[in-house]
Design a binder for these strands. Sequence first.
DNA 1: GCTTACGGTAAGTCATGGCTAACGAATTGA
DNA 2: TCAATTCGTTAGCCATGACTTACCGTAAGC
Lengths: 102, 102
Amino acid sequence: MANELIFAALADPTRRRVFEQLAARPSSVTALARTLPVSRPAVSQHLKVLSDAGLVTVRAEGTRRIYRAAPDQLADLRDWLDRMWSNALNAFAEAAEKERQK
Amino acid sequence: MANELIFAALADPTRRRVFEQLAARPSSVTALARTLPVSRPAVSQHLKVLSDAGLVTVRAEGTRRIYRAAPDQLADLRDWLDRMWSNALNAFAEAAEKERQK
DNA sequence: GCTTACGGTAAGTCATGGCTAACGAATTGA
DNA sequence: TCAATTCGTTAGCCATGACTTACCGTAAGC
């Protein structure tokens, strides 16, 4: 499943904070690192993971690199979520039906 | 954020497979282990994590314990998803607006 | 009671990955 | 050209966690 990269990317709390900040507003690597309790290289590595998962995009601006959240990939996550939801509800309905037939 | 347990629980691929199977149909621990490439204790440990996250519920049935998916907790995940989505879209719209004003 | 199936827990191993420190490349401005 | 800023990358350390083997408690069937 192609979702694997997305799940892995969003699994780490620090990485989620990076993504949440980028969803609020595009930002450079150093600006992100200033607001987080980790070093700049750490942020850079997290951004690589997010980028490989297609969750962020980059745009060079002079010597700085502006990262942005790319919400499209979240659609896969939503699809998985909806599928699980309806499956679970169906299973529950079936169980209730069996129960009723007794 | 209370989502932390949910993200952590769904981060592992094996654990997601366990949850997906339970979403399709309730099952015992041994039955789950038979369909997965890991041992029964491993499944048991995964179920504990899923249970702590509120993603599954248990029901004792004789000597067996039947696990079921509990879709309610997925709502938190959906909320986070929707928030990220709209934030990213807003940020994109603002950027487009600034671009247009030039 | 004795055995058998089921399942949680403990102990220990091993791979994964998140982090920092250090270095190198590229752009900007003096 | 030289210094300063911004980033990516690498090496290495260390904590986390996924897994198996072994063990113990418990409920059902002979």
